[in-house]
Amino acid sequence: MLEVSNLACSRGDHRLFSGLNLALLPGQIMQVQGENGKGKTSLLRTLCGFLLPDEGKITWCGEDVRELRENYFANLLYLGHHNAIKDELSALENLQISSGLSGITLDEKSAVSALRRMGLKGRERLPTKVLSQGQRRRVALARLLVGDAKLWVLDEPLTALDVGAVALIRELMAEHLAKQGMVIYTTHQPLVIEGVEMRRLSLS
């Protein structure tokens, strides 16, 4: 499904990686490893089309993603370092708007139930600026529950999360993989999903 061939990326003068190949099939999960500054985030951002690669090609179902554009984005869910939530809006409004942007109309009931599953019961209508760092991350992660995107690209999804939330993310990933979804992510914490082979890609 997702194929990357001979990818090279640089920031400024500095070459991050080159000749990178990878393929991700339905039901597979891949962890990108590497020290700080080795280009993990740049790789994920290149996969999303934010960065132009110096060389190489990224294809989705055999077609170049730069040509697919919107049709590729419809299959993609990206969660970056930033939570992409607005302080002034409530958790509920944030979730409804962000899923609206990705083309999903979300009624209040399913939005509330998604937020409750993320452990935000009773906080759905509070402005997100009064929530803690971990709770805001949970609001952002609630998007994993409402979309039907095939490919999840998650950059450090576990930052600021407590043990319970990490277990929840593991559960969500397992469900997604069981539905023939794909996940590519970075993390500095150990994450083991029962019954799933974790593929690893090391940048060095």
Partner: peptide, 19 residues
């Protein structure tokens, strides 16, 4: 741009120009 919403907008499955 600062809170990452713009990245999400660019990944919207509709044309960015409309947004």
């Amino acid at each position: 741009y600062l809170d990452g919403t713009l990245e999400q907008m660019m990944l919207a499955p509709q044309s960015l120009s409309v947004l």
